[in-house]
Design a protein around this nucleic acid. Structure first.
Length: 605
DNA sequence: GTATACTCATGCCT
DNA sequence: CAGGCATGAGTATA
C-alpha cells in the first residue's frame, strides 16, 4: 500500500505564508497571527469516495503512479468499486492532463478546476430538450466524485492558488477550490486542539446580503451570526461559537463578499476579499426582538485591493468625472453601444493614440457572399435552422456565453432572416462589456474591464483592414497586424471533459476547417479596442473564428472570449503565439516564455 | 459507521 | 420584478 505522507505535507503547509512563492502569496506586508499556526484538517468528504489517501490528486502518489507506469486502475480497490455502484455519478478514467491537479493547490490547478467546472456547467445548461435544473450542483457532484478539486483539506489563512480579488459565480465553485467548503452556510469552521483543549475556529465567511451585514466601506465588516429568526434567538453554537472562539484566538478569517451581478441582476458574483481578523463581538436585538450575534471583522492591512475596487468603479459609473487619469470618455465616439474610456494613471502624457475607430472589418475587394438561414423569429436548438445545423445541432452560445471552442463557429448574421434578438447572434454587434484602455508601465496601452466577466463571455472582435494576401507586395510588416492561417491554438484545454457525462467528444463538424486564405487584419490605421490588447504567456482571453452564416469560403471573424472569470480592472490579454515581430515579454506570469512572436507568422502549408 | 439537521443558494414560479 | 418555494449538497452532529 502506498504510504501516505500527511505528516510531511502538514509540515510544508505549516510554513508561514511569507515563505510561499511570491506569485502564490499576494501579500506585501504579512502580519503573523497572534496565536500559533492552526493546522490543516484532513478532508472528510474524500474519505467517503476513497480518493483521499491513494488518490491521483495527491501530489506524491500521482508522481508515484507516473513512475510506475500508467495503469490508473491499480489505484482502485475492490472496496471502491462497491462505493462506485452506490454513487449517482460514476468514476471515469480521465486523461493524464486532467489529473494533474494536486491535493495542495497552486495557481495552475485552481485555474484548471475552475475552467473544467464552468465548461461542463455550460454544456449541461446547453443540452436540450431536458435542461438540468442546477447544472452548478450537478457538475460539482461529478467533479467531487472524480477528485477534480483542489485544496480539499480545510485550512486557516490563505488558500494556495487563490488570489485576493478572484471572482466566482456559484457557491459550489468556492467549495471545489477549498476557499469555503459550505455549499450554503455562511460560516466555515474547523476544530483545532490547542493546549489539550479542542475548540472550533472560524476559517472563512461569506457575506452576501442574506443577513443585515454592514460592509464598512470595504475595510471592515459587521457580520451577523447564523441561525434564529424573527422570533427565535440565535445561539452561541456552531458557526457562531467558532467566530467567538476566533475573537480570542486572533486567527485569520477569509472573507468572501457576494453582491448582485452587474449584468444579470438575478445572479450573484462572489469576491475573495482576503484575510480579516475578528476584533470583537456582541449581541443585539433584531427589529423583531430576537437576539442576534454581531462580529466586527477588520481587514488585515497590506493586502491587495479587492472589494474596494468595486466600490471605486461604482463611483465612476455614477460620474465618469471621478475616474482619475481620464483622457477620453469614449474612444469609440459612439460607434460601440457601450463607451470605452481612455485613462493614463502612469505619467502625465495626455496624448491619445491616433487611429480611426472601426467597429468591424473593412475589405479592399468584394468577398464571397454570405449565406444565411430562413428562420422567422429566433433560431432555436433542434429547429430546422441551417446555421445551427451546421454547428452540429446545438446553439454555440448558452445564456450568452460560448460553450465550446471549435475550429469555427457559425453564427447568424446580416444575411439571415431571423430577428436581431436571435440567440445565435452574440458576437456580431460589437462590445457589450464596459471596457477601458489604459496606460501600462511597460507595455504601452492595455485593455481592461470595469465589469466582471464570466468565462466564455464575448469581449470584442479584432477589427481592422483586411489585407489582401493575394495581392503582390502586401505590406504586412506591421505590429498591429493580426495573422492566422488556421483555427489557432485550440487544444480542448478550455472545453469540457466529455467522458464525465458519457459523451464521446464535443461535436465539431468543421474539425478540419481552415480559412480559404490566410487571415491578415491590420489595425494600424483603423481598428477597435482589440488593437490595444497585449500579449501574455498566461492569457485570460482566447480568439475563436466566427463565420456569420454558413458558407465556409466567406471571411471568418476573429472574436475574443474570456478563458476564465476575470475580475474588474484585470488586464485582458491573449497569447500572440508567433504573430508579429519577436519581442521581449513583460507579462510577468510564472510560465513566461520571455519572448513572443517571431519575424513573421507561420507560412501556410 | 450512518442518518439527519442545518444553511447568507439557485432557478423557476406567481 | 419582488418574493415565495421546492430542491439541493457538503458538512457537522447525534
Amino acid at each position: 500500500m502506498e504510504p501516505t505522507n500527511f505528516d510531511e505535507l502538514e509540515v510544508v503547509d505549516a510554513k508561514p505564508l511569507r515563505s510561499l512563492p511570491p506569485d502564490v502569496s499576494p501579500f506585501e506586508t504579512y502580519i503573523p497571527p497572534s496565536n500559533p499556526q492552526i493546522p490543516i484538517q484532513k478532508p472528510s468528504i474524500n474519505n467517503k469516495v476513497g480518493v483521499s489517501k491513494a488518490s491521483p490528486m495527491d501530489v506524491k502518489s500521482s508522481h508515484a503512479n507516473a513512475n510506475n507506469g500508467d495503469d490508473h486502475n491499480s489505484v482502485s480497490s475492490n472496496g471502491e468499486k462497491k462505493q462506485r455502484l452506490s454513487r449517482p455519478t460514476k468514476k471515469v478514467k480521465l486523461s493524464e492532463e486532467v489529473r494533474l491537479l494536486s491535493l495542495e493547490g497552486d495557481r495552475d490547478s485552481v485555474s484548471k478546476v475552475m475552467i473544467k467546472f464552468d465548461a461542463l456547467r455550460r454544456r449541461l445548461a446547453q443540452i436540450e430538450p431536458e435542461p438540468i435544473k442546477r447544472p452548478d450542483l450537478k457538475v460539482g457532484t461529478i467533479m467531487m466524485n472524480n477528485g477534480l478539486r483542489t485544496n480539499a483539506r480545510k485550512r486557516s489563512g490563505n488558500v494556495a492558488g487563490v488570489d485576493i480579488g478572484d471572482i466566482y459565480f456559484f457557491r459550489i465553485e468556492l467549495c471545489m477550490i477549498g476557499l469555503h467548503t459550505q455549499t450554503m452556510a455562511g460560516i466555515d469552521y474547523m476544530n483545532v486542539t490547542y493546549d489539550q483543549v479542542q475548540e472550533p475556529v472560524a476559517v472563512s465567511i461569506v457575506s452576501s446580503g442574506g443577513y443585515e451585514d454592514d460592509d464598512g466601506d470595504g475595510k471592515t465588516l459587521i457580520y451577523t451570526g447564523q441561525g434564529g429568526n424573527a422570533s427565535i434567538d440565535q445561539k452561541l453554537e456552531g458557526g457562531n461559537l467558532a467566530l467567538e472562539r476566533s475573537v480570542h484566538r486572533g486567527n485569520e478569517v477569509r472573507v468572501i463578499r457576494g453582491i448582485k451581478d452587474v449584468e444579470s441582476r438575478k445572479s450573484k458574483v462572489y469576491i475573495y476579499d482576503g484575510l480579516y481578523r475578528i476584533e470583537k463581538y456582541w449581541t443585539e436585538k433584531s427589529k423583531m426582538g430576537a437576539t442576534v450575534f454581531k462580529y466586527k471583522l477588520v481587514r488585515i492591512p497590506g493586502q491587495r485591493e479587492a472589494f474596494t475596487i468595486w466600490k471605486s468603479i461604482q463611483t465612476w459609473r455614477d460620474n465618469i468625472g471621478c475616474r482619475p487619469g481620464l483622457l477620453l470618455m469614449d474612444i469609440t465616439s459612439g460607434e460601440e453601444k457601450v463607451p470605452v474610456s481612455l485613462v493614463n494613471e502612469i505619467d502625465g502624457d495626455k496624448r491619445s493614440p491616433r487611429f480611426i475607430y472601426l467597429k468591424g472589418l473593412k475589405f479592399s475587394k468584394t468577398m464571397k457572399p454570405l449565406v444565411g438561414c430562413n428562420c422567422q423569429g429566433a433560431c432555436l436548438p433542434g429547429s430546422n435552422c441551417s446555421c445551427i445545423k451546421v454547428n452540429g445541432g446545438d446553439t454555440p452560445h448558452t445564456n450568452g456565453v460560448l460553450v465550446v471552442q471549435k475550429s469555427v463557429v457559425h453564427e447568424c448574421g446580416p444575411s439571415c432572416s431571423c430577428y436581431p434578438g436571435c440567440s445565435n447572434q452574440v458576437s456580431h454587434d460589437g462590445v457589450k462589456v464596459r471596457l477601458e484602455v489604459f496606460k501600462t508601465k511597460e507595455k504601452g496601452w492595455g485593455l481592461r474591464s470595469w465589469d466582471p466577466i464570466r468565462a466564455g463571455t464575448f469581449i470584442c472582435e479584432y477589427a481592422g483592414e483586411v489585407i489582401d494576401t493575394d495581392a503582390k507586395g502586401a505590406d504586412v510588416d506591421d505590429e498591429y497586424t493580426f495573422t492566422a492561417t488556421n483555427a489557432g491554438d485550440y487544444s480542448n484545454e478550455w472545453n469540457y471533459v466529455p467522458e464525465l457525462i458519457d459523451e464521446k467528444k464535443p461535436v465539431d463538424l468543421d474539425e478540419k476547417f481552415k480559412p480559404s486564405s490566410p487571415i491578415m487584419i491590420s489595425a494600424k490605421n483603423m481598428g477597435n479596442v482589440a488593437r490595444f490588447m497585449n500579449h501574455s504567456c498566461s492569457p485570460n482571453v482566447f480568439w475563436q473564428l466566427i463565420l456569420h452564416g454558413q458558407n465556409k469560403d466567406s471571411f471568418p471573424h476573429i472574436m475574443f472570449y474570456a478563458i476564465k472569470h476575470i475580475p474588474p480592472m484585470t488586464e485582458l490579454t491573449y497569447d500572440y503565439l508567433k504573430c508579429g515581430k519577436k519581442k521581449r515579454c513583460f507579462c510577468g506570469s510564472a510560465n513566461c516564455r520571455s519572448f513572443f512572436g517571431q519575424e513573421f507568422c507561420e507560412t501556410e502549408n
